[in-house]
C-alpha cells in the first residue's frame, strides 16, 4: 500500500475519497449491487467508485486515484469475495496505450523488476481469438461460436444457446480457450474489445473496418487483475448505453437500475479526455504472494466475516 501511494505521489496523482454508498446502483448487466437502507430509502454499496470519481474529474480536471472497498452481490469463489479492495485511477490526457504503460510501470515496481524485463505481453482481443480459434471475434456470430464449440468438443454450458447474444459466447470461449493460453506467461494485456463489450469505454475504428472498444484488461496467468478504458466522455451516448444495459438487465430477469443522474450531469459539464483503470488489489496481492485463494490475502474470509 505504501509503495502504491508513493508511486502516485511521485507522479503527481492526487488521492481522493468518494462515498461508498450511493442512491444509484450500476446498470452493468452482469453486476448486482448490495442494497441497504437509510431512513426508509433504498441505497446501494458501490461496485466500483467509477461514477463518483468521474464527477470529481469533471470538476477538477486533475489526475486522481483512490483505494477503497467495492462490493458485488453473488461473487464468491477462489478469486472472488463479496467485498474487495480496489485501486482506481484516472489520467486526463492519456489514451489507452499510455495508461497501459503506466499500469505496467506500477505492477513492475511492486514486483521490484526493471523495465527491461519482458514481463508483459500485449495482445489485441482479435489476435488472441485468432491465435486460438482462427476466427475474428468482431465478426463471428453466436451460431458460429456454437458450431465451433461442437466441432472442437468445447463444453457448452447449460443455458447458453446458439441464438444467444454472441458476447455471451465470446465470454465463454475466452475463459475456456483463450485465457488458458495465458498460463505460465506472467502478465498479459488484452485490449481493443468487441464494440458491444465497451461498458464505459470509447468506441473507435479498429485496425480492420469494424469499430472496437478502447478497453483493456490485465491478466496474470488466467486471473483478471485490472480493467481500463479510454473513457467515454459523451453524456448522451453514455445515457443511451445505460438505457440499453437496463433493457438487457430486464430481459435477463434482473431489475433495472436507477440511472445515476449526477454522473450524467457531470459528463454534460465536461469530462476531460482521459483514461482510467480499476485494479483488484486483493488479487494483485495473491499474485505477489503466490497464493491460489483470495481468502488467504483477506484478514477474515467471507465465511468468518
Amino acid at each position: 500500500m505504501k509503495k502504491i501511494r508513493a508511486f502516485f505521489d511521485a507522479r503527481g496523482v492526487i488521492e481522493v475519497e468518494t462515498p461508498l454508498i450511493s442512491r444509484y446502483s450500476t446498470t452493468d448487466p452482469h453486476l448486482d449491487s448490495l442494497a441497504t437502507r437509510f431512513r426508509e430509502q433504498d441505497c446501494y454499496l458501490n461496485t466500483s467508485p467509477e461514477y463518483a470519481m468521474k464527477r470529481l474529474l469533471a470538476q477538477w480536471q486533475q489526475p486522481i486515484y483512490q483505494i477503497c472497498k467495492a462490493f458485488r452481490d453473488d461473487e464468491l469463489g477462489p478469486n472472488h469475495n463479496p467485498e474487495f479492495t480496489m485501486l482506481e485511477w484516472y489520467r486526463p490526457g492519456y489514451d489507452m496505450l499510455q495508461l497501459m504503460a503506466e499500469v505496467a510501470d506500477l505492477v513492475g515496481s511492486l514486483f521490484g523488476r526493471s523495465d527491461a524485463d519482458p514481463l508483459f505481453e500485449y495482445l489485441s482481443y482479435q489476435q488472441a481469438f485468432e491465435d486460438v480459434t482462427g476466427f475474428d471475434p468482431h465478426q463471428v456470430t453466436a451460431k458460429q461460436c456454437y458450431n465451433y464449440s461442437v466441432d472442437n468438443h468445447v463444453e457448452v454450458p447449460q443455458g447458453l444457446r446458439p441464438e444467444d447474444d454472441v458476447n455471451h459466447w465470446l465470454d465463454w470461449l475466452l475463459t475456456q480457450l483463450v485465457l488458458p493460453t495465458f498460463d505460465n506467461r506472467g502478465f498479459t494485456f488484452l485490449y481493443d474489445y468487441p464494440a458491444a463489450q465497451c461498458a464505459l469505454a470509447k468506441v473507435e475504428p479498429g485496425p480492420g473496418s469494424l469499430p472496437v472498444a478502447k478497453r483493456f484488461e490485465l491478466f496474470y496467468g488466467e486471473v483478471e487483475l485490472a480493467n481500463g478504458f479510454y473513457e467515454l466522455t459523451d453524456a448522451d451516448e453514455q445515457l443511451n448505453r445505460f438505457r440499453r444495459e437496463n433493457e438487457k438487465r430486464l430481459s435477463a430477469g434482473r431489475e433495472a437500475s436507477k440511472i445515476d443522474e449526477n454522473f450524467i450531469d457531470a459528463l454534460r459539464c465536461g469530462l476531460p479526455d482521459c483514461s482510467g483503470v480499476a485494479m483488484g488489489l486483493d488479487r494483485l496481492m495473491m499474485v505477489l504472494t503466490g497464493t491460489a485463494c483470495i481468502d488467504q490475502v483477506l484478514s477474515f474470509a467471507w465465511d468468518c466475516s
Binding site: 461473487e75 477462489p78 463444453e155 454450458p157 447449460q158 443455458g159 447458453l160 475466452l174 475463459t175 485465457l179
Partner: peptide, 30 residues
Amino acid sequence: NVVKPGKGQAFNKIKAKNLRTGRVLERTFK
C-alpha cells in the same frame, strides 16, 4: 465455482455427486 471473465457473462462450474450411482459429474451453467 463462479467463472467470470471480467465484466462479462458469468458461468457456474459445479461438481455434483449422483445420489443413485455415486458418480461425480461436472457441469457448467450460464
